[in-house]
C-alpha cells in the first residue's frame, strides 16, 4: 500500500508520541493504575479505538508486524479500517496470523492462541474506570483507588449473588492487578480474563475519549474478582465450533434462518482458519462448504 507522505510516521507528531510514551512508562511502573494522558483528536471517531490507535502509533517501529482484530476477527470493518490506517501512515507489515504479529491491537477479544514473549497487546478501552458504574464521579473513584477502598465493587458483585445466585457480569469483568489496583480489562468476555494473568506478552490499554492509559507488564498476576464460595468461572458451550470443531475457543452464535436455527463458530477467525487448514473439521463444516460453492 502507498505510504502517506504528508503525515509523520504513524500519524502522530513526535511531541504527542513522547507524551504518550512517558505515560506508558509510568503505566508500566504502576500496573493497573490509569495514567491520565492528553489524548488527541484522531481522524476516526471516539469509540472507534482512538486510545488503542494512539498507543499503537506511539510504540510502533518500522519493523513491526501489526495485527488488528475486532470481536476476534481480522475482517470486521473496523479492524480493516484501522489496519489500513497504519498501512497508510506507517507503512508497516500487517498480518492476520497471531503468531506472526509483534503488535496486536484488539477490540473486545484476546486471541485464543497463547501469546509469546516479545508480543504486545494493545486494547481499545471505552470506559477505563472499573468503578465508574458504581460511582460516576472521577474525583471519588480516584480517591477510592488511592485508598484501595474497593468495598463498593465487592458489594455490587455480592448483590448479584444474592439476587441471581451467581455474579451477573459477563464482560469487562473487573480484575485485581498485582494485588493492588482494580482494573477494567476492557470489554473482553470474562472467558478471556484468565489469559490476562501472568501473560508472557506485554499488555497496554488505551482509552482515547477518557484520556487514560494503563498497562500490565508481562508476568503480572491478574486475578478476576470473586468470593471463596463463588469462585470466578468462565463461559462454556455445549457444542464445539461448527467449522473447526474446537471446544476450547470462544464461540459466536450465528442465526441461520428465521426458524431459530443457530450455529456456533469461533470468534477468533485466525484460530478457526488455522485449525481448519490443519485438517480439523467441525460438525457443520461440510454443509457450510457446500453452501459457499
Amino acid at each position: 500500500m502507498q505510504e502517506e507522505q504528508n503525515y509523520n510516521f504513524a500519524y502522530l507528531d513526535e511531541q504527542t508520541k513522547r507524551m504518550i510514551r512517558r505515560a506508558l512508562l509510568k503505566a508500566l511502573a504502576v500496573p493497573g493504575y490509569q495514567v491520565p494522558f492528553a489524548g488527541r483528536e484522531m481522524p476516526m471517531p471516539y469509540g472507534w479505538g482512538t486510545g488503542g490507535i494512539q498507543v499503537t502509533a506511539a510504540i510502533l517501529e518500522p519493523e513491526d508486524t501489526l495485527k488488528v482484530i475486532d470481536q476476534g476477527a481480522d475482517d470486521t470493518t473496523n479492524a480493516v479500517s484501522i489496519r489500513k490506517f497504519f498501512q497508510k501512515v506507517a507503512g508497516v507489515e500487517t498480518t492476520e496470523k497471531t503468531e506472526e504479529a509483534s503488535i496486536i491491537q484488539t477490540r473486545h477479544r484476546i486471541p485464543e492462541r497463547d501469546l509469546e514473549e516479545g508480543q504486545i497487546m494493545v486494547y481499545q478501552v471505552p470506559i477505563p474506570e472499573p468503578l465508574r458504574f458504581l460511582e460516576p464521579r472521577e474525583t471519588e473513584t480516584r480517591k477510592m483507588h488511592a485508598l484501595e477502598e474497593y468495598g463498593l465493587m465487592h458489594v455490587k458483585l455480592y448483590e448479584d449473588i444474592a439476587r441471581h445466585g451467581h455474579i451477573a457480569t459477563t464482560y469487562a469483568y473487573p480484575v485485581k492487578v498485582a494485588d493492588r489496583y482494580i482494573m477494567d480489562p476492557s470489554p473482553i468476555p470474562k472467558f478471556d480474563n484468565p489469559k490476562l494473568d501472568n501473560s508472557p506478552a506485554l499488555q497496554l490499554f488505551g482509552a482515547g475519549r477518557e484520556k487514560r492509559i494503563y498497562a500490565l507488564p508481562p508476568y503480572t498476576p491478574v486475578k478476576s474478582l470473586d468470593f471463596e464460595d463463588h469462585p470466578f468461572e468462565t463461559q462454556t458451550w455445549d457444542e464445539p465450533c461448527a467449522l473447526c470443531g474446537a471446544t476450547d475457543s470462544y464461540l459466536d452464535e450465528v442465526i441461520m434462518d428465521d426458524k431459530g436455527t443457530r450455529m456456533f463458530v469461533c470468534s477468533d477467525t485466525d484460530y478457526c482458519t488455522t485449525r481448519r487448514e490443519a485438517g480439523h473439521v467441525g460438525p457443520d463444516a461440510q454443509a457450510v462448504g457446500e453452501a459457499a460453492e
Partner: peptide, 20 residues
C-alpha cells in the same frame, strides 16, 4: 534519523521497563 531513532529507542525503554 529523529523519528525512527526515537521509535526504536523508546521500544528499547518500553521493553526495559516492562521487564525489570
Amino acid at each position: 534519523d529523529p523519528v525512527r531513532d526515537a521509535a526504536v529507542s523508546f521500544r528499547c525503554l518500553l521493553n526495559a521497563m516492562s521487564r525489570p
